[in-house]
Every structure is written in structure tokens, then in C-alpha cells.
Design a protein around this nucleic acid. Sequence first.
DNA 1: ATTACTACCGTCCGAGTAG
DNA 2: TCTACTCGGACGGTAGTAA
Lengths: 217, 217
Amino acid sequence: MRYDDIEIISLILRLKKDIISTGEFAPALGLSQQSVSRKIRELESNGLIKKEITARGQKITVLAKGLSLLRTTLNELNEAVGSIKKNLMFKGFVVSGLGEGSYYLGQDKYFVQFLDKLGFSPFKGTLNLRIKEDSNLDAKEAVISKVPIIINGFSDSGRTFGDIMCFRCKINNEVEGAIIVPKRTHHDDRIVEIIAPVCLRESMTLVDGDEVEVTSY
Amino acid sequence: MRYDDIEIISLILRLKKDIISTGEFAPALGLSQQSVSRKIRELESNGLIKKEITARGQKITVLAKGLSLLRTTLNELNEAVGSIKKNLMFKGFVVSGLGEGSYYLGQDKYFVQFLDKLGFSPFKGTLNLRIKEDSNLDAKEAVISKVPIIINGFSDSGRTFGDIMCFRCKINNEVEGAIIVPKRTHHDDRIVEIIAPVCLRESMTLVDGDEVEVTSY
DNA sequence: ATTACTACCGTCCGAGTAG
DNA sequence: TCTACTCGGACGGTAGTAA
């Protein structure tokens, strides 16, 4: 478990203190003072750090070997996070629109924001997909847990319209559009509403039951 | 030791395989098949991943909670690596110039490159520092293991002049200059030669034995 | 204050093996 | 093959305390 060492080195560097006591370290690592003391001694004997003990604590210098381990790990995590993006794809089946999306698109105060924030003027209707497999559901959850583009809500003639979250996506690797999700109402998890500059049913000749692939990027 | 989980999740993502067996995982983590099996079950019960067991192995999906942990860790490491730069400071004592630096500065073909690549025209002499403490020596090593600015070597009337590596630095947090290190000759590790647009001895009224702080940025 | 030793003990690892 | 159970033993954790 190489990453144990990294956790400590990372903390040492982030504390940005010249002198640190093992007791100070302990709670941040969820360990006792004694264990931290031992861990640090181990790091030193592995040549990852160097320490000088003073009256108030120890001055720790992360050595080249330690830094190199840190950088390697950083690269690994970057690679891991990078590979997530490629996993952000899910499939669903075209269903007839029962979603609220189309209604939103009819509201001018929403509509103007779409062009502004998404860069395209959406067709005034949504493509509704139903997700069947659980694995695709997870992918969809991953997409809509990314940082959303927010379409602000408003009040009009006594009614309140909430914020809408948008997530850019590509439909069948062909057309660029966006998944829209009302911020408040958590309606059926398995239905996804998609908007695009064009009518997707027409431009891609889709009918109910057709499988569609959605990629987030 | 939170990072243990990360190590496994990171590996899962980097393998980019749909189906993975615990036995395949084991060597990469330095654990036994049994331990990997248990670790993965723990990850699942902590809600970080989801797994489906098939005949050939298990299909693992990293859940939102797992991804978020991964991103947090990535940010921490980025912060840690970022803070290294601020740690790149060392101290040395002014000594009389026995270095080769001054000689280099006398060579026009080198000299013109300094202005070009460093953005300043150096005073035709170097400030030589001797590093006494080992901790400072480590910091100095860290500085000169960064990506160097290279001053190209050349041949002149039969003699060969090698490449020179430069590292921007700040002297006593006051004057901007550069550490220069011949690429070939690995002369005394404890002597550092510094160039600056001005004569540092004069502008900072330095004499032999004065302590000087060098920061790399 | 600190660090770190000793002693004890709980957790975790892995060999064997079942399913 | 695969996953995962049992169980003995090692490793790692902490309390007490010395330096």
C-alpha cells in the first residue's frame, strides 16, 4: 500500500510549516502520536524524507525520492480521473415525451438563457430517454453529478419556476446538445431529457424504442 | 489511511477493463488474492464502488462517492506538489569566486544568450555561495533538478564550450537572477554560482561569509 | 514541550480450501 | 477458472512512560 506514504508526504507539504510535531499530525491522519512518530521514522529510513528533531517538533524535508513518488502518484490519479471521462456514456431508449422539459422550453425567460449559456438555440421540444440497465444508470448519475450549467429560475404571474441544470452532451456521437434536469424535483431517475439545436427525432429519424447513446464531455 | 481506498480505485480505473479478477489485481497492489477480494468488498460496503460478479471475474463500477473521493485526493496532491515550489529556498555563504562562471560571462557567444533567454544582461561576474547545511543542499538539488533554461555551448578557436543550465532565482527575496550550472562538469556540489543584472556584492553590500537566501520560483 | 521505547492487543493479511 | 470463507499468525496501532 504505497499510497499510505503519499498520504503523509502530501499532508506534510500541505501544512506548509517549518516545524511540525507528531501530535499535531496525528488527528489529520486519524492516527496516534506514536504511530505518526513511527510512520515518519519509516519514511526516513526509506529515504523519502529527512528530519531534524528540534525542541518544538521536527523539521521535515521531503527528499527527491519522496517528491518523485508524489509526482508519480499524481500522474496515476490524473490518468485515473482522465479515464473517467471516457466512461461518461450511457444508453437509453426513446420514449414519448411526458417530461416537463418541453414546458420549460415554452417559457421565454428560460429560453433566452439557453442560447446565452449553452451557445445554441434549442428546438422547442425535448427528446426523452428511458434508461433500462443499472450500469447505464450509474453513468447517467455520474454525468449529472458534474458541475452543472445553471439556467436561473424566475417568478411569473404568481408561479415560481426553479433553476434548471444543464450538462453538455453528444447524442449518438453526432449531435451536440444538453441534458436538462430540474434542480428541485427529483422525478423518475430513469428518464433523461435532452435538448439540441435541432429536432432530434427528425434529424436522426428516431422513433419510440430506438436506442440512443449519450456521451458527456 | 484513506489513501488505501484511492490506490485501489485508481488502479481499477487505469486498468480500463470491464471484467477484472481479484487474482489479476493482487500483484499490482502487492496483496494476495484474498485480501483484494476483501478490500473490494469493503469498498462496496462503503458505497465507493459497485460490483457484479460474473464467471470470469467482477465488473466494477466506480460510484459517484468513489469518484468524488478520487477528485478530492487529486486536488490534495496537486496542492502538495504546488507547495513544493514555495519550499525551493536554500541558504549559502558568500565565498570568493573560484567558479568557472565569470569565465563564461566573458565569452560573447554565451553572453548574448543570457539576455535572450533570461531577459536580462548579466553583470560580468558571478556571486559564489557555499552551502553548509545538508538540508539546504537538498533544496539546492531540488532547484537544479527543475527544467533548466539552456544556454547553448559552442566551439571557438579549437576549444569546446558546453551547455550551461540556468535556473531563475531571487536573491534575498530582493534581486532577480539565475543560478548557472555547467551541464557537463559536476564540480563541487556545495558551490552555487549566481548571476544577476547587477553586481550583487555591491548592490547588496555583501562580503565573504555573509549569509544569502536563494529562492527559486 | 517534544520524540520514541516497550508492551500489549486488535486488525488485517494470506494459506488452505469450499462453493 | 472464479470469489470468498476460516483461522492462525504477523503486522500495525495505541497506552504508558522514559528521555
